[in-house]
Design a binder for these strands. Structure first.
Lengths: 223, 223
DNA sequence: ACTAATTTTTAGGGTTGTCTAAAAATTAAT
DNA sequence: ATTAATTTTTAGACAACCCTAAAAATTAGT
């Protein structure tokens, strides 16, 4: 019996976890295949394996749920991924659009001590460079309040807390616009016909499309 | 055609490189198998693959030599391995007997920028925690002068520069004896019958077996 | 409710890297 | 120089993970 988890298995569990966050139905074979850039038939194979190992609950044709054990593993990977992202930005001069690819590799390194010491070394960060919360050692995740910039009304002020889409393209767009985590933004005007909004930040005025505003997490300022 | 190198291939090249350092004949199938804890038949299979990729020169029944390309890859892995070891000891409180296992994983992470930035972050270290030289970006390796403690004569003084055997057991033995890199040692007496030697360091007197003295690199002090 | 479209699974196969057992080549020994 | 011992290779097989194509189940449309 193979007692050690493979990188592939870890990636499946992580993908299932992330998919299960954005819904509360079973996670479909197809959605996993899409997320992992693989074929549905491969997913079915792997799901059976994960089910045998009691990491997912699986009913044929009905998709999967993570078990408690599966969720624990997924969160541990997520924790490692995000800690490494912080390390790369904080100490190795990586930009927020460069870290993901490298963290995808680093997250699979197996060493309890490594994770713990890294966490301590980084002074127990709570969020990664994209504003996503870092699970603590016990797997607790501080939840985003998940308010999007698109939901902010005219004349309200808010602070950018995170990005929903963390693709390289989006992150580079934000860089070129001067928008970062922590940036204070005021909504000046919202266009009714395309939902784009005029915002004011750091003295600059800009128009951003709904595609942008729907992918930025913010914290509203109380008046 | 698969353009990317696998971790297994990297491990084979690294093993062949280390074996070829301690001899100047072709590296035998069996020795590789032993080093990698695998079977000779598996090695033969892999060697053919490495030969197809022009990373080793292979003549049936005659063992292998690394090509220039193969050597380059091996050195790159070695460089990453040793840089990570330095990082683990210097910043994450690992002991020198703990680092190897974790560095074996970290060395396979692929990112030019990561290696470069790590090197810079560590301030371009020249040696790892076991005293082994770290190849520079171009693959140049500062060579040990390779004098062993066992070769030092009575009343001579020297400094511990590295370990030949870096097994956990040996490293722990050294820790318990108080011997570290940089420790100044004087040879007080050599026993003819078993080649053990009496040494003096930091005011302490100790008898060490030849097995120990043959595994410690030193730098002689000029008189 | 029944057909059509979609999703998921099965069947059969490929690749990588491993193994055992047997055959072939090399090296050692007398 | 032959035989004996050792090393290396080949042959055949297996596990992990992936694929395509076809079959089965589910969901959607009218």
């Amino acid at each position: 019996m193979n007692t050690q988890i493979s990188q592939t298995e870890e990636n499946y569990l992580k993908a299932i976890f992330r998919l299960s966050l954005s819904q509360n139905k079973a996670v479909s074979t197809n959605s996993i295949a899409e997320k992992l850039n693989t074929k549905a038939s491969s997913v079915t194979d792997m799901i059976k394996k994960l089910s045998d190992k009691k990491w997912v609950d699986y009913v044929k044709y009905q998709g999967v749920f993570l078990t408690l054990a599966g969720k624990k593993i997924a969160i541990r990977i997520l924790r490692k991924h995000r800690l490494w992202e912080v390390f790369l930005v904080k100490h190795l001069d990586f930009t927020w659009d460069e870290v993901h690819e490298v963290a995808e590799q680093l997250e699979h390194v197996k060493s309890e001590k490594l994770t713990q010491q890294l966490d301590a070394y980084l002074e127990y960060p709570t969020h990664d460079p994209h504003g996503d919360p870092i699970p603590d050692e016990d797997g607790n995740i501080a939840h985003h309040k998940e308010i999007m910039l698109s939901a902010i009304s005219c004349n309200e002020k808010c602070t950018i807390m995170g990005v929903k889409d963390s693709s390289v393209a989006f992150l580079k767009y934000l860089d070129s616009s001067g928008i970062q985590l922590g940036t204070l933004v005021e909504v000046v005007k919202k266009e009714a016909f395309d939902q784009s909004m005029h915002i004011l930040f750091e003295g600059k005025k800009r128009n951003i499309s709904q595609q942008i505003s729907k992918n930025l997490f913010v914290k509203k300022h109380r008046l």
